Simulated scan of single mutants.
Amino acid sequence: MIVTLTPNPSLDRTATVPELRRGEVLRASRVRLDPGGKGVNVARALTAAGTPTVALLPAGGTVGERLAALLAPEGVAVVAVPIAGTTRSNITVVEADGTTTKINEPGPEISPAELAALERRAVELAGRDSWLVCCGSLPAGVPDDFYARLTRLAHDAGAKVAVDSSGAPLAAACAGGPDLLKPNLDELTELAGRPLPLLGDVVDFCRELVAGGVGSVLVSLGARGAVLVDAAETHHAAGPLVAVRSTVGAGDAALAGFLHAGGSGPQALRTAVAYGTAAVAQEGSRMPTPQDVHADAVRLFAADPTVNLSGAAA
């Protein structure tokens, strides 16, 4: 069982335009409305792959109701913790060349009682031999160490924990010793507090994180694939070049693929890259299905420390 926790889910509206021109009135050629939030996306991809998954999230207002309703046709099992605030709505603008611009609302404030209920449900659902996947930003009212605290509680319950976040919550999560950290290149660079221009720099910093108590680190490198670092080995994988329709949710799809394939080792890395590659070929934040994924097209090789990552999309 995999339990995804999304403290700040969203309703995502994606508009496709020929070109984004500041200060002008634009007409969208297509508009999609999707359930959003990193953990929600992971749950969607896992459910489509047939992996038993529960999406845990706070839900408030008509937007929260609509979010849950959109997940129902995809068969995603949802556990919603009611909140007084209204679930946020996000806007994504995708240009003809695949360039993506996102406007994310901050989300509702979570009260201490609502946060306690969310934490309690997470620990109840994430039992022995399961994964608790903590994803995304934290809304107002949630302390930066929320994921670190949840990691310790989940470990006490016998579960493994993956964290995919950024900024202060990601930095604080490392202290909890998660089994898997899933940043992209920009997020890892911010966490390091120094430039990471080469693949060798990325691997070295990941090894620092593992030495500090993180089980393994899966880093999305955009068009350059992903790298996996754990205490025993390091691998780099890259997929074929595809026409990019939207980068929204590509990292979430990669995390779903990694967990679907067992959550460790080089073959799980190949599957992660295959899912991420399939995701960028989808419109909006649509998650790939197994029919979209081609792991046999992903190359797996030893990490070359001299590979220059400049210009790689995160």
Rank of each mutant, 00 (worst) to 15 (best):
L269H: 01
H294L: 13
D304V: 10
A243H: 14
A253H: 01
A253Y: 01
P288M: 07
S285D: 06
V298F: 03
R299Q: 15
L241T: 15
G265Y: 10
L269F: 09
L241Q: 15
R270I: 05
A274L: 10
A256P: 06
V242M: 12
N308T: 14
D292Q: 03
G262Y: 05
L259G: 04
G284M: 03
Q282T: 11
H235F: 14
V298C: 01
A254G: 06
V307K: 05
A281M: 11
L309G: 02
L300W: 07
R286A: 13
A272V: 02
A302P: 05
A279E: 05
E233K: 06
R286L: 14
H260V: 10
P305R: 09
A253Q: 06
G257W: 03
P266L: 11
A261I: 02
V242L: 13
T277P: 08
T271A: 15
A256W: 01
V229W: 00
V227I: 12
A297N: 10
A250S: 15
G263C: 09
P288K: 01
V248L: 07
V227T: 08
E233M: 12
G249F: 00
V248W: 03
F258A: 04
V244L: 06
D304W: 10
H260C: 10
R245E: 12
G262R: 01
R299D: 15
A297Y: 00
D252C: 10
A303P: 02
A256D: 08
A253I: 08
V242A: 11
Q267D: 15
G262S: 09
T271K: 07
A226E: 00
A261D: 05
A303C: 09
A231R: 12
V248G: 04
G265Q: 04
S285C: 11
G263L: 07
A279K: 05
V244W: 06
A303Q: 08
L309D: 02
P266F: 09
A279V: 03
A226I: 09
S246D: 07
T271D: 11
Y275R: 04
Y275C: 02
T289I: 09
P290R: 05
H235A: 14
A297D: 11
R270K: 15
D304M: 08
Q282C: 14
T234C: 10
T271Q: 15
R286Q: 14
E283P: 06
D252Q: 02
S246N: 10
Q291T: 12
R270P: 03
D292E: 04
T247R: 06
A281Q: 09
L255T: 03
V244Y: 05
F301S: 15
H235D: 13
A250P: 04
A302Y: 10
S264R: 13
V298I: 13
G263K: 00
A238I: 13
T234K: 06
T277W: 03
A272F: 08
T234R: 05
H260P: 07
A231M: 13
